[in-house]
Simulated scan of single mutants.
Amino acid sequence: MVFLQPPDATHLLGFVTLFLASALLLLGLLSLAFVLRFRFKAQRSRFLALRDFNSLWPVRIILVGSSFLWALSELFRLPLLRQRGWLFYRLGSSQQAGLCRLHVAASLGLAEPCFFLAAVSLLRGSMQAGKGSGRWAAFLTMASCLPALALHSFVAFGLPQLRRPRYLDHFFVESFGRPRHGGGTTGVWCSFPLLSTIITAASGIAFVPYFLSLSWRMMDMVINRRLGVRVYGLSLTVLISPAVHVCAMGVSVFWKGQDVEFQILAFLSFLSVCVCSAVAQIILVIMPIADSLAVDSLIPADDGTEKKPPHACVLHMGSLSPEDEDEDDGEELLLGPTQG
């Protein structure tokens, strides 16, 4: 018995995708509010370690902004929005094809590389607290995204305009296809060019081992069990999500865009990156800033002294986090504020 026919799968997976993308956008706005609030608080804080942590705020903005851009770009390819009565229904076929190409360039070429490079910069910067410039790290992060953007843009916009070699099949370069029949849908279906999938896979082969090596080095520095759980959770997510993302995009070339199998694979690809983006924002942005703001609230502002908080604090992962209540280990787990 078939539980999901193509129209049902398109609507069901479309609604779930729309809900998750909206939730990720809201999470991005929340993360941005945390970054801006902490920047304002750190500039006025007497606790100098908070100012060191705040130095990476431009990189956090890139992480949040790239996640925001990725969620928006995923809406460009969503079949639900091309159905009768939805946002892209009245667009012509050429305009919808342009949205599919734009999705490849914006999502695979810009948002995903910038997101993962920003995560690497934050993880590496957290092990070099107080060293380097956050603006310089942000510049290097954005500059490092340009090669991927150029390659994916060429695959999406350039190669289809060129005369394709005979050995290069259409699914290597095409980012859209036309439906075989109507069914309330006009225009085109977005797909994943196999060359873009190969480029993404090559980037992941270079990124994932380096990120895991940084995580391993971080575990040697972490003296807080809660932070250790965060590092393990982030590492596991980064290990699994890109692999699922690339495999789903690669296997999807065996089906047409309106086939139920393609819709399931496209949703699986979306879900893997969505989970990775949400976990990274929570662990690398929201939680460390929330911990730091909690510690800052314990520091008196009416005199020049800096009082130690009632729990031991650590300065790893770029965060100030209350240590678990362990009286035997409390003193040796304390890492005091930076001295001026």
Rank of each mutant, 00 (worst) to 15 (best):
L4H: 08
P6N: 02
D8Y: 12
L18W: 08
A23L: 13
L25D: 02
L27S: 05
S31T: 06
L36E: 13
S45E: 06
L50S: 15
F53Y: 01
G65Y: 01
L69W: 08
S94V: 10
A97G: 08
C100L: 11
V104A: 14
G109K: 13
P113F: 10
C114P: 00
F116K: 01
M127W: 01
A129H: 06
G130P: 00
S133P: 05
L146R: 06
V155I: 15
F157R: 02
P160L: 10
R163T: 10
Y167H: 05
D169T: 09
H170G: 03
F172S: 08
F172V: 03
V173P: 03
E174T: 09
S175Q: 01
R178K: 12
R178Q: 13
P179Y: 06
T197H: 01
I199S: 06
A201K: 06
P209D: 08
R217D: 13
M219V: 06
D220Q: 12
D220W: 02
G228N: 07
V229Q: 10
Y232D: 03
T237S: 15
I240S: 10
S241T: 10
A243E: 02
H245A: 09
V246K: 05
V246D: 02
A248Q: 01
V253I: 13
D259I: 04
S272Y: 03
C274S: 14
P288C: 03
I289W: 09
D291R: 03
L293A: 03
S297F: 10
T305A: 10
T305Q: 12
P309A: 15
L315W: 09
M317N: 04
E325Q: 07
D329Y: 07
L335Y: 03
G340K: 12
